[in-house]
């Protein structure tokens, strides 16, 4: 393998991994607070890709404007999912919310087929981001470098919010004891909505970057990245934000590198994630950085 090829694979793996991580963070935050696996999260990611397709390709808006509208639009969708499908079930058994989550996921996918049609659409990549930078014998595409940089930056901002701001304090408190958090004067529903908003905004960014990186959109594009991001979240330790990012990166490297070194395995590409999942569940069920889940007192 030449240096050029290795660097390409490395950047690809980092990019794919950080996109998994960006989606996984949304799963892990909602799980941390509500003990709910938000199965609709992958479809929220898909909406991010469609929003950017419609704003920039169909309506030909400037890039930054299109991206801004997409993030806001997807965040609103995420908030609606919480308000309509999960909030009425807040005091219901946990399994009810889980079933509701699966229902929402099917609903968004099929609604997308009706509204967008099932035909895959091409996304136009901005030429500026595709012009290779040549360093020695290595050719780098700016878009490929941008993906991990943006992802890590956003997760850094998120960590700052969770650990250094007042709403972040409330989030960490809710994840342990909802009733006591209410006693402290926290409007719990508002903090949960904020959690969904943040998770959806990150999924939107992941969807946008995905649509640029693998330039096409289709209604079922969220299913596999969604599954894999969920696996990344479990692998990293569900409930832990850094864990979700680490899990995503590891998954990205496993997928890209195993095919890079063993090209005849490429048919099994989507299976690696599940092998990784079974492996971690056998060895350390709480994930790499997950804490032991204590029962609430």
């Amino acid at each position: 393998m030449t240096l050029n090829m290795f660097v390409q694979h490395f950047i690809n793996a980092l990019g794919l991994g950080s996109l998994y991580g960006l989606i996984a963070v949304g799963y892990t935050m909602v799980y941390g607070i509500l003990r709910l696996i938000n199965f609709a999260h992958g479809d929220i990611f898909m909406l991010g890709a469609y929003f950017v397709y419609f704003t920039t390709v169909v309506f030909k808006l400037p890039w930054l404007l299109g991206v801004g509208i997409s993030i806001i639009g997807v965040t609103v969708c995420g908030l609606l999912v919480d308000r309509i499908a999960y909030r009425p079930l807040r005091n219901a058994p946990r399994i009810s919310a889980l079933i509701s989550a699966i229902g929402v996921s099917f609903f968004i996918e099929n609604l997308a087929i009706v509204v967008f049609s099932g035909i895959p659409r091409p996304v136009v990549q901005p030429p500026l981001l595709m012009k290779p930078i040549v360093v020695g014998q290595v050719r780098l595409i700016p878009l490929g470098l941008m993906v991990p940089v943006i992802s890590f930056f956003l997760v850094g901002v998120l960590l700052w919010m969770v650990y250094k701001t007042k709403p972040g304090l409330a989030m960490r408190s809710i994840s342990f004891d909802i009733e006591t958090t209410r006693l402290m004067g926290v409007s719990v529903d508002r903090i949960i909505a904020l959690t969904f908003a943040l998770g959806s905004a990150l999924a939107a960014v992941a969807g946008i970057l995905w649509a640029l990186r693998y330039p096409r959109v289709e209604p079922f594009m969220g299913i596999f990245p969604g599954f894999k991001a969920f696996i990344a979240a479990v692998f990293g330790g569900i409930g832990s934000i850094p864990g979700a990012m680490v899990g995503g990166i590891i998954l990205g490297f496993v997928e890209i590198m195993s095919i890079a070194f063993f090209p005849h395995l490429s048919g099994y590409k989507d299976a690696f994630a599940f092998v990784l999942l079974i492996f971690i569940l056998l060895i350390k069920p709480t994930g790499l950085m997950g804490e032991k889940l204590e029962d609430k007192i």
């Binding site: 007042k166 409330a170 342990f176």
Partner: peptide
Amino acid sequence: VKMGIALSPEGRRILPHLTVEENLYLGAY
């Protein structure tokens, strides 16, 4: 709580994974 009523609940219900100071800041939320 905003109106001026506070309850220190039965069993204390300290948030064990937050620091003492974070617990106090939460009280002033």
